[in-house]
């Protein structure tokens, strides 16, 4: 199946700084793609390039096969977007805001009711947007992005500034969109733990480069899991493990042992048996999956090390 987004060597420079540095992005159809990276990593610049709001310094971007620069309008017809801040005309109501976009897209008035329903904003639709909470403004932004029944929805930091309830509502909304609206969703965020909850695919941006990209399962497969062991005699247990050549660290009263991805269950059982056999009481034992944040830090550290090595 054709990718919803495909970029080849996409680059964009501002002055002497490469904001986007040769990224080859592939976003599969019907996926929820978490586009991750710290602030200033190049996520928003990439999104602006994908929407044709910026011209690339080199490389190209395609939306469902349409070149964004050469076939901007064909590509734009397939995309709905919420870029950076939720932009609205504050003096108009939510419905009037949507009406302006509806008119420009040449849609029927029923489109407004449909998207208000999707984002659950019908009750507030006739209130001036100036009085909306940030969460409501974000949802109105998503509603506007969905107006033209896009095949691809691009949401730039949609949970920025939201309170926990607003974040949860937005997460539920985004996670349901592929099934409800049949869209592919690209969500940029610097809050990795948040995206981990609903993304099917991930891409990690760092200093303008796409360090990793693929399904979430691939991200986690092959990552080093750890075994956390709670014991009554931490120092003695540490000595036992070191004595048998097992690398372990003391974190408070727990021991943390790094294990490969495939042998964690067996490893945990062996460690338990080893410690109990040496008279150490084990009160807790858990295989810990690395969080996305830990994976991200590890990938970024590796990339930085490689960069330093090349520079040296």
């Amino acid at each position: 199946m054709e990718d919803a987004i495909a970029t080849d060597g996409l680059k964009r420079r501002f002055g002497s700084k490469w904001a986007v540095d040769g990224i080859d992005l592939r976003v599969p159809c019907r996926s929820v793609y978490g586009f991750l990276g710290e602030n200033g990593a190049g996520k928003t610049t990439t999104i602006r390039l994908l929407l044709g709001l910026l011209k690339p310094s080199s490389g190209n971007a395609r939306i469902f096969g349409h070149d964004v620069q050469r076939q901007r309008r064909e590509a734009a017809r397939l995309v709905g977007a919420l870029v950076e801040l939720p932009s609205h005309y504050d003096h108009l109501t939510g419905r009037q805001n949507l009406d302006i976009s509806r008119l420009l897209l040449g849609l029927d008035r029923t489109a407004i009711e449909r998207v208000l329903e999707v984002v659950d904003l019908r009750a507030a639709a006739d209130r001036a947007v100036g009085g909306y909470s940030l969460g409501m403004r974000q949802r109105l932004g998503v509603a506007r992005a969905l107006l033209g029944r896009p095949k691809l929805l691009i949401l730039d930091e949609p949970t920025n500034g939201l309170d926990p309830n607003g974040i949860r509502d937005m997460r539920v909304l985004i996670a349901g969109l592929p099934e409800r609206e049949g869209v592919t969703v690209l969500v940029s965020s610097h809050v990795l733990a948040e995206v981990e909850l609903f993304a099917t695919h991930l891409g990690l941006m760092h200093r303008g480069k796409l360090l990793m990209s693929g399904p979430v399962s691939e991200f986690k497969a092959g990552q080093v899991k750890t075994i956390r062991i709670d014991v009554d005699q931490p120092q003695a247990a540490l000595a036992v493990l070191h004595g048998t050549g097992i690398r372990a660290e003391l974190h408070g009263s727990s021991l943390v042992v790094a294990q490969g991805a495939s042998d964690t269950a067996a490893g945990a059982a062996q460690l338990n048996a080893l410690l109990v056999g040496k008279g150490v009481a084990v009160s807790g034992l858990a295989v810990v999956q690395p969080t996305l944040e830990e994976i991200f830090v590890s990938v970024v550290d590796n990339a930085s090390d490689r960069g330093s090595a090349i520079a040296a």
């Binding site: 044709g52 709001l53 897209l105 506007r144 033209g148």
Partner: peptide
């Protein structure tokens, strides 16, 4: 950002 990303 919104206007100029529309297919117009």
């Amino acid at each position: 950002n919104h206007l100029l990303a529309l297919p117009v």
